[in-house]
Design a protein around this nucleic acid. Sequence first.
RNA 1: GGGCGCUUAGCUCAGUUGGUAGAGCGUCUGGUUUACACCCAGAAGGUCACAGGUUCGAGCCCUGUAGCGCCCACCA
Length: 769
Amino acid sequence: MAELEKRFDLAQEQKIYEEWEKGGYFKPEINNDKDKGEYCIIMPPPNANGNLHLGHALMVAVEDILIRYNRMLGKKTLWLPGADHAGFETWVVFEKVLQKQGKSKFDFDRDDLYKQIWDFTQNNKEVMVSQLKSLGSSCDWSREKFTLDKDIVKTVYKIFKKMHDEGLIYRGNRIVNWDPYHQTGFSDLEINHVERKTNLTYIRYPIKGREDFITVATTRPETMLGDTAVAVNPNDIRYKNLIGEIAVLPILNREIPIIADEAVEMGFGTGAVKITPAHDNLDFEIGERHNLPAIQVIDKFAKMTAEAGNDFEGLKVKEARTKVLDKLEELKLIEKVEEITHNASVCYKCGRDIEPLITEQWFIRVKDLAKSAIEAVENGDTKFVTARYEKIFFNWMENLKDWNISRQIVWGIRIPAWFCECGEIMVTDGEVPKKCPKCGSPKLTQDPDTFDTWFSSAQWPYATLGYPDGKDYQDFYPTDVMETAWDILIFWVARMIMMGIYTTGKEPFKTVYIHGLIRDKKGAKMSKSKGNVVNPMDLIEKYGSDALRLSLIMGNAPGNDLNFMEEKIIGSRNFVTKLWNIARFIQMNTEEVNNVSHETFTIADNWINSELNSTLKLVTKNIDTYNLNLAIEELYDFVWSKFAAIYIESAKFYLNNGINKDNVSFTLRSVFRHVIKALHPFMPFVTEEIWQNLKLSDKMLIVEDWPNNNQVETNEAAIKKFNGVIAVISDIRNKNMDPSDSYTIDNSEFSEEEINLIMSQVKIREIKH
RNA sequence: GGGCGCUUAGCUCAGUUGGUAGAGCGUCUGGUUUACACCCAGAAGGUCACAGGUUCGAGCCCUGUAGCGCCCACCA
C-alpha cells in the first residue's frame, strides 16, 4: 500500500463521485431490507436560469447529510433531484440575455421565443447538474425531473381541470397587481412595498344641490378621472349628513354618490376618500360591496384611456397627474398639499411601479385549502424545524387572499383553456377541444397565458413521484423532509401543503426543515448588484467540497441566517487535513489485528472507546433532531481534541515501546473506522477516500452501516485511571515546567507503566511518588 | 396596525427537558516531537442588553424596557 500524501488531493473528489454514481449507490434500490423502511427527500429544484449560489450549497449539505445518514441506516432512500423552469424569474433573466444581443422579445414570435428559452434553460440545467455533483449530492439522477417534463405537465393539467370542475378555480375580471413594464399580472406575493415620499393632495368635490363640498385626499390625483364614488366611514359624525348625497366629480362633472363603508379610516386625510374601483385594491373591494361601476382610465401600458376624456387620452400616468393638478388649480379646488411617506407597490424583480388594474385572470379559492393546511400543521402531520416557523406559517395562512395563477408571459406551462367567439370557455386536462360544446364552432383559441410557476411547483412532491399510480409514489409519499430556505416558505412550502392535501388527501412531507440565508461577512444579503456574491464553485476548487459543506453546517443553528467568511472554510479545510493525517498515522503505524481481548485493553483504549460511545450517541441523537451543527461539532471535538490530541499521543508511547501493541493497533483502527463512518454524511469525499486507501472494508463507505456504538465494553476503573493520567499531564503542562525539573505526585497509585506514559507526554526529568 | 426574531469573549456564533459559561477565528507566550506548521503545548479575554419576577438555583422560564433586524397589511 502506497504511503498517503500529506494532504487530501481535492482532485479525487470527482473520481469518488463517479465511482458512487457508477456503482448505483444513489438509487434507493441499493437498500432492500423492508424492515428498515423508506426515506425520501424531494430536492427543491433550483432555477434553471443561472449558476448555483451558496444557498444551494447549504441546501445540498443539509439534505445530503440526512440522505446519507438514512442510507447508512439501511433505509430505502430516495433523494430526487430536479430543475425549475422558473417562469417569470427565467423570463427576466432571459430578457437581459436578449438585451445583451441587442434584441428584445418583440423581435420573435411566441414559439420562437419559447424555443430559445427552452434551449437556454437546458444549457443551464447541465451546468447546474455538474455543480450539484461537485457538491457531492448523492441524489438519484435517473429520476431527475424538470418542471416542464411531459408527465409533470400532465399532472398539473389534470389537477387544474379537477379544481376548475370543483369550483376551486375560477376565471375572474378582478383587480390584480399589474406590471406595465413586464406586461403581466402578479400574485400578492410578487409585490414589494417600498417607502416613498409623495404628495397627498386635498381636493374639493362639490356637492350637488348645495353650496358645499367634500374634501378628499389622494396621492394619485390622475385616478380621479375614474372615480365612481366618495366614501366615508359610517361612524364619522362629520359626514353623517352627507351620506347618500351626490358629489360632482370635478373636471369630468360626473355625478357620483357619497357612500358609507367601514373600511374607510376616519383618521387618515379628511376621512373622506375618492373611490376608483378600477385602479385601487381597496376601492375595488368597496366598489364590489356597493355595486359601483369600475371605469378604467389607465391601460396596460400605464397610459390614460379614452374614458379619461379627450384631454387626457394617451398621456402617461405622470403627465396626466400634472395636467389634472393644473386643471384643479384653475378650478381652485385644491385645498392643500402635504408631503407624506407611504408604501408604494413595485415589482419584486425590477422595482418598477405596479399599477393595480382589472384584468381577466385565473384564481384559486384558497380559503378551504388553507384551512386543511393549517389543520395538518396543527395536528402534527407536518412539523416545522425550527418550530418558530410554524407561527409564521399560521400568521400567513390565516390571512390568505385568492391566488392569481395566470401570468401573461410566454415562458411556462400554457393554461389548458380555450375560448370560443360565443364566449364559452373550455377547460381540459391538456387535450385540444375540437369544437365549442355550446355553439359548435370549431374556431377556438387557446388562452395565451401561462401558469404562475408556483402553481406547478406546488404539485412537485406528488407530481415527481408519479401520482397516482407510480411505484415511487406508493413507496415514498408522503415524503419525509422538505428542506428549503425561509424566503420561500409561503411561496412554495405552504402551497405544497395545500395542494398536496387537496390532491392526495395526505400532507406531502412530514417535516419541513427551514434553513437560513447565506449573507456576506457583514451580514448583508448577497446580490450581483452589490458585487458581494461568493461563488461556491470557486470555494470548492480552492478548499474542496467537504470543507465548504462543513463550513456551512458548523456553528449555524437550524433556521438561522449565516454570515459567510473565508476564515470559516479555512478552518474546515484544516479539519479535513487533520483527518487525513490521522489516516496517515494509522496507515504508517498499525496493521489490521483481529484477535484481541477487551480484557487486555490499556487504560487509554478503555477511555477512548468510552468517549467514542458517548460521542456516537450524541451525534445520532442530534441528527435525529436535526441539530446537524451540534452533531458535527461533537465529532469535530472528538476527533481533534480527544482522538488525535490525547489518544494518538498516548498510542505513540505504547507502540514505540512495544507495549500492548496489538490492542492499541486494534483500537486505533476500530475507533477510526467508527469515526469515519459517522463523519461520512458531513464530509463524504475525504472519508470515502480514506476508507478506500486504508481498505477499512470491502464495501464502499457510502453503503456502510451507521455506527450507533462501538460494540466495546469499557472498564470503569480503567477509564478513571486514564482520566487521572490526563489530569496529571495537564497539571504538569500548566506549570510550564523546565525539562530539568521533576514533579511530585501525592498519594500516587500510578503504576510504573502509567508513570512512563505520563513522562512520554511531558518534558520533565522525572516523576517522584 | 399585526406578526416573528436577535442582543453571550475583540470578531462570527453555539449553548433543546434550568444545575458551577463554550467553539472557531483573532491576540499573546513557548515549540525544527519522525501523522499533520492547514501543526503542537499553554495564556489572556464574558456581572450572558437592561429591570423586575418564579426557583434551593436562570444565558435558558415569566413580565416589562431599550436597541437592532425581518415579514405581512386596503395609511387612500
